[in-house]
Each structure stands twice: as C-alpha cells, then as structure tokens.
C-alpha cells in the first residue's frame, strides 16, 4: 500500500506540474498573439495616415493655385513627390519617397508665407490644419509603433517567455527609424 500511495502522489505532482506548464504556455501564447496584433495595428495606422496625406495634397494644391500663379515649380515638386510616394513598391522606397514629399510640402508652405490673401482663405486654413495634423499623426503613429514593437521584442527576448516565443516562432520587429534627418524635420512645417 505504501509504495502504491507514493507512486500515486508522485504521479499527481507531475501531472499538476505539467498542467501548470501547459497553462503558462497557453497564457503566454495568447499574450504574444495580442501583442503582435497591437504591433500590426500600430503599423497599419502609419499607412492610414500616409494615405490621408496623399489624399489631402490635391485639394491643397487646387485651393492654392488660384492665388499663386507664379509658383508652378513648387506645385510640380509637390505633385511629383506625391506621385512617387504613391507609386513606391518597397518599404525602403516608400520611406525615401515620403521623406521627399515632406520636404516638398515644407518648401510649399514656406512659399505660402508670401501670399497673405491665401493665408486668410478659410478653406485653405482648414486644409492647412488637416495637413499639419496629418503630419503629427504620422509622427505619433511611428512613435506608437516603436513603443509597441519594443514591448513585443522585450517579451520575446526575456526568460521564460522567450521559450514560448521560440516554440511558436514569434520574431522580433524592426523599429521604424526615420532615415533622413530632413524627414525628421518634416512635421515642423511652419503653419
């Protein structure tokens, strides 16, 4: 009877231990899935805002054209940069093109300073607010993505959750680094 009881107890302890491990793995797996979705969501938010910027530009140019007949070069620079940004295929290309678009926009806004009539136009002011807000949103979306990615990466690297991450092959995410210094300046367009 003694040996039977001991064997039973040992079995029970092992079973309980296994159960705990399984529960931990399930829990951690679910945490990782949730975190990954958050990171993806933050990433898609950047895309949403970039697309919004592309949508705003034609309206802005259209409104400004009536006031700024002698600035064709500036308009063309913005329009071309927008076309390039929209046509970019790879992430690296997109980052570069978006940077160039930001530059073109800030030059455009500098030129606007010379046209007081345009700056008094209610419609233009509204578009300007939308554009500057969109620039901010792009910056904040990047910021949020990097925050989420860092948290996700930390969990992947830390013990013991790194074991679970290894089993289900959750991989680290790259940070969204702003490549050119010029692009970093983009949100500070003078409005």
């Amino acid at each position: 009877m003694g040996i039977g009881m001991i064997a039973l107890i040992v079995l029970l302890v092992i079973a309980a231990g296994l159960l705990l491990v399984i529960l931990y793995v399930i829990g951690t797996y679910n945490v990782f899935v949730g975190l990954r979705n958050q990171v993806d969501n933050a990433w898609s938010q950047i895309d949403v805002q970039l697309k919004r910027r592309h949508d705003l530009i034609p309206n802005l140019v259209e409104t400004a054209k009536g006031y700024m007949q002698h600035e064709r070069g500036t308009f063309e620079a913005v329009t071309n940069a927008r076309a390039q940004a929209m046509g970019a295929k790879t992430v690296a290309d997109a980052a570069k093109a978006e940077g160039a678009l930001g530059d073109a926009l800030s030059k455009f806004m500098l030129v606007v300073e010379n046209y007081p009539d345009l700056k008094a136009n209610q419609n233009f002011l509204a578009l300007q607010e939308e554009l500057s807000s969109t620039e901010n949103k792009i910056a904040f979306a990047r910021q949020a993505y990097n925050d989420q990615a860092m948290f996700f990466n930390n969990r992947i690297q830390m013990f013991p959750s790194n074991i679970v991450a290894g089993i289900f092959s959750f991989t680290k995410r790259d940070f969204f680094e702003v490549s050119a210094a010029a692009e970093r300046e983009a949100p500070k367009v003078s409005f």
């Binding site: 958050q38 933050a42 509204a126 607010e129 807000s133 901010n136 904040f140 979306a141 949020a144």
Partner: peptide
C-alpha cells in the same frame, strides 16, 4: 472644432 478633434485623434494614435 477641427483642431480639438485632430489633437484628440493625434493623442489617441500616440497612446495606441
């Protein structure tokens, strides 16, 4: 109030 609305949206994006 577009500015208020935009600023709230900006902060909600920043906070995720």
């Amino acid at each position: 109030h577009p500015q208020l609305f935009n600023v709230v949206e900006e902060m909600s994006i920043a906070a995720g």
